[in-house]
Structures are given as structure tokens and as C-alpha cells.
């Protein structure tokens, strides 16, 4: 058994050198390439993961924003609902108020109209009544009535104040005795006598006829009129009628003594 030591040494060195050479030229480059590729792949995977995470974050942000939008929308809707409700309520209130006001106005108008109508009807009824009374009074003709009117004229003249009565008696003043129908001479003389007696003087007295008096005897001085006729009475009654809800004109036929008004006429 022989062992060639030189060969052993050579082979040992040879294998060592081969190991070094292959390490230098084969194993290291290839494994470095493998490592590099793995690193590249890992990096790309990491990048992909990072991008994915970024996308997920963006998605989450979007979702949050969308939720915010939704909440905002809900808030806006709720506000709108509230505003609409308030507007509706106020509109309803206004409408109700207006309706109430309109109703009140309408009621008032109706009331006013009714009152006006009542007044108008009252006036018309008064006029009708006065007209009817006047028509009725025209039938009361005659000497008795004439005498009654003369009496009441005399009383009215006597009721006048002394100064006024004196004013009637001034000279040159012509008094007019106005009647509804022409008087005959006897009636004229009675009337003159009565008036002179009432005044206490003898002024000149003219006689005039005015059919519109209906009935009565009046004394017209230049500054004074002693109204004593159906017409004057009816006018006075008529003046008192408006405003009264229940005018009740008395029939003149009873011929109740009425207060005689001395109306000063404008000079």
C-alpha cells in the first residue's frame, strides 16, 4: 500500500483552489442574484402592501367623508324639515289670524251693513210714517183746527222773550201770517186781533198761503219765524227719529200739544 504524498498535497491544494474559484465565480454571484431578486420581490410586495394600505386609508377617509356627508345631509334635512314646519305653523297662524280678522271684519261689516240698513229702513219708515201722518193731517181741515193753531200761535208768541216780542212790534215791520189755505176775512180779523193781543202792539200783518205747511198758522217776521204747523212738527219729529232703533211716530191725530220751537231764520 503506497500513498503518493505529493499527489495528496496537490489534490488538497487543487480542491481548495477549486472551492475558492467556484466560490468566487459561481456560488457567490448566483446566490447574490437570488438574494437580490428576493429583496426586489419583497420590496415590491412591501410597496404593494404600502400602496394597498394607502388605498385602504383613502377608502376609510372617503367612507368617513361620506358618512360626514350623510350626517350633514341628515342635519340639513332636519333643519329644512324644522324650517318648513315653522313656516307652515307661522303660515297657519297668519292664515288663521287673517281668517279671524277677516271674519271679524266681515262680522263687523255685516253688523254695520245691518245697522245701516236698519237706519235706512228706520229713516224710510219714519218718512213713510211722517208722510202718512201728513196725509192724514191734511184731512183735518176746518175752523176748529184753525182756531187751535191760532191759539197755539198766540201762546208761542207770548212765550217769546220780551225783547223779541218788542222787536216784533217795531214800526214798519210787516209780519206775515202764513197759513196752508187762504183765510176768509172773518178768520183774518180774528187772527189779527189775537196776534195783536199777543204781541201787545198793532203791527201790520199780511197774509200768505203756503200749502206745504199741511196745516197750521205761522208768523214770519224778518228776523224771526214762529213755527206753528204740521210741517214744522213733522220735521222736528223726523229730526229726532234717526239713531233710534224703534222709531214710533205718534199719530198726529191725537194732536197732543207739542213744544213749539221758535227757529230763528237767518237774516
Amino acid at each position: 500500500m503506497t500513498l503518493n504524498w505529493w499527489t495528496l498535497g496537490f489534490q488538497t491544494v487543487n480542491v481548495l483552489v477549486l472551492i475558492w474559484l467556484l466560490q468566487r465565480f459561481f456560488w457567490r454571484p448566483v446566490s447574490a442574484m437570488i438574494t437580490q431578486r428576493q429583496a426586489t420581490i419583497r420590496k415590491s410586495v412591501d410597496d404593494a402592501h404600502a400602496i394597498e394600505a394607502k388605498a385602504a386609508a383613502a377608502l376609510a377617509t372617503t367612507v368617513t367623508t361620506r358618512a360626514g356627508f350623510e350626517a350633514e345631509r341628515q342635519t340639513i334635512l332636519a333643519d329644512a324639515h324644522k324650517a318648513a314646519e315653522a313656516a307652515r305653523a307661522s303660515l297657519l297662524d297668519t292664515a288663521r289670524t287673517q281668517a279671524l280678522a277677516l271674519q271679524a271684519a266681515a262680522t263687523a261689516a255685516i253688523e254695520a251693513g245691518r245697522q245701516a240698513a236698519d237706519a235706512a229702513w228706520s229713516g224710510r219708515a219714519g218718512q213713510l210714517a211722517i208722510g202718512m201722518a201728513g196725509r192724514l193731517a191734511t184731512r183735518l181741515e176746518g175752523a176748529a183746527v184753525q182756531a187751535l193753531f191760532l191759539d197755539s200761535l198766540v201762546q208761542a208768541i207770548r212765550a217769546l222773550p220780551e225783547a223779541v216780542r218788542a222787536g216784533l212790534a217795531v214800526d214798519g215791520v210787516t209780519l206775515d201770517a202764513v197759513s196752508d189755505a187762504p183765510l176768509d176775512d172773518a178768520a183774518r180779523a180774528v187772527a189779527v186781533t189775537a196776534i195783536h193781543g199777543a204781541i201787545g202792539a198793532q203791527p201790520e200783518i199780511g197774509f200768505k198761503v203756503d200749502a206745504s205747511l199741511i196745516g197750521g198758522l205761522e208768523l214770519h217776521a224778518p228776523h224771526l219765524t214762529v213755527a206753528n204747523s204740521w210741517r214744522a212738527d213733522l220735521a222736528r219729529i223726523h229730526d229726532q227719529l234717526p239713531g233710534e232703533s224703534q222709531p214710533a211716530p205718534r199719530p198726529k191725530a191725537s194732536n197732543a200739544p207739542l213744544p213749539l220751537a221758535t227757529v230763528p231764520t237767518a237774516a
Binding site: N4, W6, T7, F10, Q11, N14, V15, V17, L18, L21
Partner: peptide, 13 residues
């Protein structure tokens, strides 16, 4: 001494 093994090894290397 250089044997054939060494030469063959060199060639293989």
C-alpha cells in the same frame, strides 16, 4: 511527481 490524477483534476477544475 505529478500523477495523472493531478492532471485530470486540473482539467476538471
Amino acid at each position: 511527481t505529478i500523477t495523472g490524477d493531478v492532471v485530470a483534476t486540473w482539467v476538471i477544475m
